[in-house]
Amino acid sequence: MAINLQKGQTINLRKNERGDNVYDLSTVTIGLGWDVRRQGGFFGRLFGGSDGPEYDLDAVAFLLDKNGKVADLGKTLPGSYGREVVLYQSDVIYFNSMRHPSGKIWLTGDKRTGAGDGDDEQIIVKLDQLDERYQKIVFVVSIYQGLINRQHFGMIENAFIRAVDAKGREITKFSLSGDASMNGMCSMVFAEVYRHNGDWKFRAIGEPYPTDNFIEVLVPYTYK
């Protein structure tokens, strides 16, 4: 049975509540989901209302070394319309570089609406095969152009991050819904997994940031 975490709580991903090694970490799915709070007040909800503008939430993963830093920032490539593609084939997994060069962690794709049940975005990681130089993975969610569109986590409800093992068993889940403390916050360090005594642990974080650019969240995790 999956363990529902509160902010700041940590569990061992391989063990169940009794401490037995039951979960298969050869392939772990980190699933993220959310709903956009319906607009229009009581009468708008009563008569169908409007779901409001599209929200594009992007899942990102930082792979950290023993110093808690991203060691490989990859390449910068020319992109379309004069824009550069940064962090390509780096230790950062995001929409412009969806698969790590090792092939052990990847982003499945970008779902823009948050509509429907289940995961809206997924990051797949082969934890048991990940190189020892990676000691921690930090999972971030950012609202694309949230500042321009005046969209923030205070407008989002039923947001969650969960871990599912290779056999499809949900190991743990951390949920939160937007409130006044999330107003103006456009990015979130949602959770992290990290090595501990030869195993992997999962920590629920839920730390919001006002920026809608995940690179600003990344800066403290890089070498100066």
Rank of each mutant, 00 (worst) to 15 (best):
Q89F: 01
G74L: 00
V36R: 09
A115V: 06
L5N: 03
P210Q: 14
G118Q: 08
E54V: 14
E84I: 11
K136E: 05
L13E: 00
C186W: 05
D72F: 09
R38P: 15
K69T: 03
N213E: 13
L127N: 11
V193S: 01
M1V: 12
F62C: 06
P210N: 13
D131K: 10
F95E: 06
L147V: 09
G114V: 11
A71T: 14
R83K: 15
N197S: 12
K136Q: 14
I93Q: 10
L25C: 08
D165Y: 13
D20K: 15
F202G: 15
G52W: 00
D65V: 04
V138A: 11
F95M: 11
S175E: 13
D35E: 15
T10Y: 03
K111G: 14
N4V: 07
G31A: 09
N213S: 12
G109E: 02
D117F: 08
M182W: 13
K69Q: 02
T172W: 06
V189Y: 11
G44S: 00
S80F: 07
G79D: 05
G168W: 11
I124D: 14
A204R: 13
G118R: 01
N16V: 06
G198F: 02
P220S: 06
V70Y: 07
M155A: 10
V219G: 12
S175P: 09
T211W: 04
D165W: 09
N67D: 09
D20Q: 15
V60F: 00
I205R: 15
Y223V: 14
Q145F: 07
R99H: 07
K111F: 14
D110T: 13
D179Y: 00
L25W: 11
Y194S: 04
V22W: 13
I124S: 05
L77W: 05
L25T: 08
V92W: 10
A163W: 04
G198V: 13
F43V: 10
R18K: 10
G52N: 03
V140M: 13
T27P: 00
K111V: 14
V70F: 00
N21S: 10
T29F: 04
H196I: 09
F174M: 00
P208M: 04
D65P: 01
F42W: 15
I124M: 15
G82Y: 00
N158G: 05
G48W: 11
N21Y: 14
L127V: 06
G184W: 09
G146K: 02
A191M: 08
S50R: 13
